[in-house]
Amino acid sequence: MTNIPLTAREVRLLRYQSGPLKAEHFEVIETPVPSLGPSQVLVRNRWFRISISTRLMAEAGAVTVKGIPFPPLKPGDTLADGAIGEVVQVGPGTSLEVGNLVLHPLGWREYARVPAAQCKRIEGPNVDPAAWLGHGWTAYAALVGGIQVRSGDTVFVSSGAGAIGSMAGQIARLLGATRIIGSTSSAEKARWMQQELGYDAVVTRDGAPICEQLTEAAPDGIDVIVDMVGGDQLAAALEISRHGARCVLLGAVSAELNPSNATLRAPVELDTFQLILRGVTIRGFSADEHAPELFDAWISQAATWQRAGRIQLSRTMCKGLDAATLALEQACAGQLKGVVLAELESC
C-alpha cells in the first residue's frame, strides 16, 4: 500500500511573461494533497510531458485553443499536461483500482486528483512513457489518417528534431517513403537527425535561404509536406511541391515561439494559382479531434516497430519538478530534441 503524504509539490505560473519563457516565470510550491469526491481518483505521477505550447497558454489574454490539451493559465494556476501515474486512492463510483497505471491530463504535480473519466488505463508492467506521452501518435495519425504516404514519396518534415518531427520522418519511411528531408535550427541538430533518425537531408535556419536549400535537397520536388512551423518554410516547400502533393499542417511553431510574443497568427503568402494547377492538397489536422481512434493503433504499431528495432522514440528526460521548469525554458528556446519528459521520484 502506498503511503499518501499530507502535502505534495506542484508547479504554478508565477506571473505573465512577455518574450521568451523562463524558468523564473514559475514557482514550485507545496500544497495539501487533495481529497476525493465521487468518480475521482488520486494519482501519484511518474512522468509528465513538457510542451512548448505552455508558452502560448502562459500569455496574458490567452484563450482556449482546440488541439492544445490544457487550458489558458492565469498567475497562480497549476500547469497541466499529459501524465502517467499510479492510482493510489479511489473515490466511490469508479471502476479503477489502486495500483492501476493510467494516462491522464494533469501533469506538473506530484499527486493529481483526476476525474476517472479522464483516465486511460495502461495495461502491462512495461511502459515506455515516450510512446504514450510523445507525439509519435500525432505523426502516425497524420500520415495514416490525415493524408497517406505512398511508396516512393519524397517527404519534407519541418521542425524535424522536435516532438512530432523526430517521429514523422521515421514513420514516413516505415510507410514507404524513399527520401526524407527535414528542417531544424542548427547544424548540430541536423547531424543528429541524419545520424540518429535517418533523415537523408536537413535544411537549417542558419544556412542559405530555405527555398535554395530545399531545391538542392529535393531536385525532383516534394510529394508530402508535414508542417509544424508555417511561414517561409511552408511557402518554400509548397513552391517545389510536385503534382498531387499532399500537405498536412500540424502546428505553427513560428507563431507559438514568436520572439516578441506567442500568438495564434501565423501568416504566410502562397501562390494559390500554382497549387491549383498542381492539384496540391493542404489539410489542417488535429489527432485528438480527427483521429482519436488511431491512438491504440499507434501504441500497438510502435511496440511492434520497437521490438524489431525499426524506430527510435526520441526523448529528452529531466528529473523532478525543479528541473522541469528549466527544461521548459530550454525546449521553448529550441535547445532540446524529441519529446521532453519529466520523471518524478518514487514515493
Rank of each mutant, 00 (worst) to 15 (best):
V144W: 02
G136A: 06
R310M: 13
L344S: 01
L341K: 08
V11K: 03
K189C: 09
Q274I: 06
D288W: 09
A218K: 06
A218V: 02
V41L: 11
L257R: 02
G146F: 09
L21S: 03
S254N: 07
S53P: 01
R265I: 02
I240E: 03
L103M: 14
K319C: 09
G107S: 12
T325W: 10
P92T: 13
G284C: 04
G198R: 00
Q148I: 06
I222G: 05
V98K: 10
I171V: 14
F156I: 01
K189D: 01
D296I: 00
M167C: 14
Q306R: 13
D77K: 01
V280I: 15
G251Y: 08
S300D: 13
G251F: 05
P32V: 06
S151L: 11
G134T: 06
P105M: 13
W137F: 14
T304G: 09
R315Q: 14
T281G: 05
L14Q: 12
S53H: 15
V98D: 04
I311E: 04
R109Y: 07
P292E: 03
T272D: 00
R44C: 09
A201R: 13
F273M: 03
I52V: 15
L270G: 05
Q17M: 14
L341A: 12
I50R: 06
V41G: 06
E123M: 07
T304H: 08
P32I: 08
N126I: 15
A333S: 09
L249V: 05
L321Q: 06
A130Y: 05
L321A: 07
T215L: 12
R278M: 01
A131V: 13
E212Q: 14
T204C: 15
A236Y: 05
E188I: 12
P209N: 05
A218I: 02
A262R: 02
A342E: 00
I68E: 09
A161V: 10
V11A: 01
E256M: 03
V340G: 09
A287K: 06
G221F: 01
A8K: 04
W192L: 14
V102Q: 12
S186K: 12
E239Y: 09
C119E: 13
C318F: 07
A60N: 14
K22V: 12
L103V: 09
E97H: 10
L234G: 04
T325R: 07
L101E: 08
T304F: 01
L101D: 00
P259T: 10
A80D: 00
T281K: 00
F285D: 03
V248M: 11
D232G: 01
T138F: 09
A297Q: 10
D322I: 12
W298N: 06
R265A: 08
R242H: 02
A141Q: 08
N258A: 02
I311D: 02
S254L: 04
L257E: 01
S260D: 15
V102N: 11
E289L: 15
G251S: 10
L14I: 06
V43G: 03
T281Y: 05
W192V: 10
A217L: 03
D232T: 08
A245P: 05
P75T: 04
P75N: 10
Q40K: 14
G134C: 10
E196P: 00
A139T: 07
S159Y: 04
F70A: 05
T178L: 02
R12G: 04
S241V: 05
P34L: 07
E289M: 14
G334Q: 08
R109V: 03
R109N: 07
Q301F: 13
A236L: 04
V33D: 03
G176R: 07
S53I: 04
